[in-house]
């Protein structure tokens, strides 16, 4: 992360930002990104707003409205007149993000943004990052060690093992390859099993109790299974696909399942 923000130099290799090679004097490129490396440091005795104003001054970004917008986004408007020393860890983290986005960056680089936060703080940061990505179109790179959080935040995951990238994969792809079975609930398991067998040629199933069927043959996509069941008058009360956990998937990679990317 420090290499990407020009804080340290790589021993070898290259970094390309916005289509151009990053050099020690790429100041304009760095102005197009916001970052929190390790943890955000502030002038503790200054107010939250004063910290943001100072940052914008450093960056040569003069738009007071942008500070209000950033404070609104991280829900610190109204308490931005308080000195930062009175802020909780979660509030400081949100202020760090406000500072990183105040200058309207195209790319946000966040080093373990949820580490050390309580569950409420984690949820707030997660929601905020989702808004920044989905509604504001900001590209985000996050480093993390927390598997459970990845699922909520990532479109793409780069898995690092001892400093080496062993896989770069979209979360969607992980979900597809990680599927275990389709499970649905119905009031007529006998008829459902007949439809699966005769209309979709699916026989690798298991009936659980009176109302649940699991399909282990995943060659037919879930929407197609659902459609055929309904067209043949099988009342489907609910249907979903069960995936094995991301933890199992990634630990499998570390145990020899992944090749260097």
């Amino acid at each position: 992360m420090k290499m990407l923000t020009n804080l340290i130099k790589p021993t070898s290799g290259e970094i390309e930002l916005f289509g151009e090679k990053l050099t020690p004097t790429s100041y304009s490129m760095l102005g197009r990104m916001g970052s929190i490396i390790e943890y955000p440091i502030f002038y503790d005795k200054l107010t939250a707003r004063a910290n943001l104003e100072l940052h914008c001054e450093y960056m040569g970004y003069y738009n007071k409205k942008a500070i209000d917008e950033a404070l609104d986004l991280v829900q610190l408007r109204g308490i931005d007149g308080k000195p930062v020393k009175d802020f909780s860890l979660g509030m400081k983290q949100r202020l760090g993000i406000a500072r990183a986005i105040a200058t309207k960056p195209e790319l946000l680089i966040l080093d373990e943004p949820i580490n050390g936060l309580d569950p409420v703080g984690i949820r707030e940061i997660r929601q905020l990052l989702r808004i920044l990505s989905q509604e504001y179109g900001i590209s985000i790179l996050i480093s993390s060690h927390l598997l459970a959080e990845i699922e909520q935040l990532a479109d793409t995951i780069g898995v690092i093992n001892h400093g080496r990238l062993i896989q770069e994969v979209s979360l969607e792809q992980v979900r597809v390859t990680n599927a275990e079975y389709i499970e649905f609930h119905t009031n007529d398991c006998v008829k459902a099993a007949y439809v699966l067998s005769h209309h979709l040629n699916i026989s690798n199933i298991r009936v659980i109790g009176n109302r649940t069927i699991r399909i282990y043959d995943l060659s037919t996509p879930l929407p197609q299974v659902n459609k055929v069941l309904i067209l043949n008058d099988v009342a489907v009360e609910s249907i979903h696909q069960k995936n094995s956990s991301l933890e199992e998937y990634f630990l499998g990679l570390l145990n020899g399942g992944g090749q260097s990317a």
Binding site: L89, S133, S139, I140, S143, A154, G158, H162, R164
Partner: peptide
């Protein structure tokens, strides 16, 4: 070590390092 990775425009990418412990805050 020789990391080649990409961040797509408008997307969230997570660099997941499973071999290091998270830093204490």
């Amino acid at each position: 070590s020789e990391v080649s990775m990409r961040v797509k425009k408008g997307k969230s990418t997570v660099s997941l390092d499973l071999t290091e412990r998270a830093r204490p805050r």
